[in-house]
Design a protein around this nucleic acid. Structure first.
Lengths: 130, 130
DNA sequence: CTTGACCTTCCCATCATGGGAAGCCCTATC
DNA sequence: GATAGGGCTTCCCATGATGGGAAGGTCAAG
């Protein structure tokens, strides 16, 4: 299976597959005599694993840990769960930050009449003194 | 006022002040005979404006537009409001995406007993077939 | 045998931010 | 007046995950 087919089958772009190989997130695959990368079903499954992890927002470093646990038959599920809950915590923190921005923005936007006149509480707030 | 003092007064790091100048988000300030940047209160206020905008998640490109409107006494507040509501929309979209990740992760984490045994629905899900 | 689709590597760009090196400048203290 | 320490300058590099594109080799169908 060439890289293009592996990309289609896994949902990871060929570009990213090469990148993951370059940072050693995945092992270097076999090559044909002419240098083409060849992927086995197992490797494609690993790529799908990576893509699903990315879809859940895991950074590459954490995916590395997830892959190690995935391969480790003597893993403790507690370790996996901790990665998941840490990820939840990080996402929730970011959501809270963005929600605070949204709240402020909505408050300001509500106070702006949004017509042809220049008076604007949004700019007034951004430009207010210290 | 030197760059360090302007940084303290505005909350924008000296590094970022130089960066904003390099991308022409702010005009090049006056210099002393020896080449030190000198900032007036007006320029510090502009830096504060930028920092507040960044705190609300605006990307630099949008801050450029906000600054232009700020300076334009013939602006229409509708234009400012549109920037704000667009920003709200973008943030809300990202929040929804992250919330979906959180929901999935929590569902998976709840199903994982998180003990010393290797069985783990989280890994099972990430590694499941197509 | 040609054509077009694929593959390879390599370099560059994003976006906002920080780190650090080499070297100059200013002020306070001795 | 010399020296020390801290601040300033520019320049280069790195981040994280991704895409774009060029130059050139390969493969399969017609």
């Amino acid at each position: 299976m060439n890289i293009g087919d592996a990309a289609k089958a896994s949902g990871v772009s060929a570009k990213m597959i090469r990148y993951y190989e370059s940072i050693a997130l995945i092992p270097a695959p076999n090559r044909t005599g002419s240098g083409y990368r060849v992927y086995s079903p197992t490797e494609v499954q690993m790529l799908r694993f990576i893509r699903r992890s990315r879809d859940l927002g895991f950074p590459v470093g954490k995916i590395e840990e997830l892959l190690a646990l995935w391969r480790d038959r003597t893993r403790h599920s507690a370790d996996v769960k901790r990665l998941a809950t840490d990820q939840i915590d990080g996402l929730e923190r970011r959501v809270r930050e963005m929600q605070a921005m949204i709240d402020t923005l909505r408050h300001l936007a509500d106070a702006c009449c949004g017509d042809h006149r220049p008076d604007c509480p949004i700019l007034a707030d951004l430009g207010r003194g210290p």
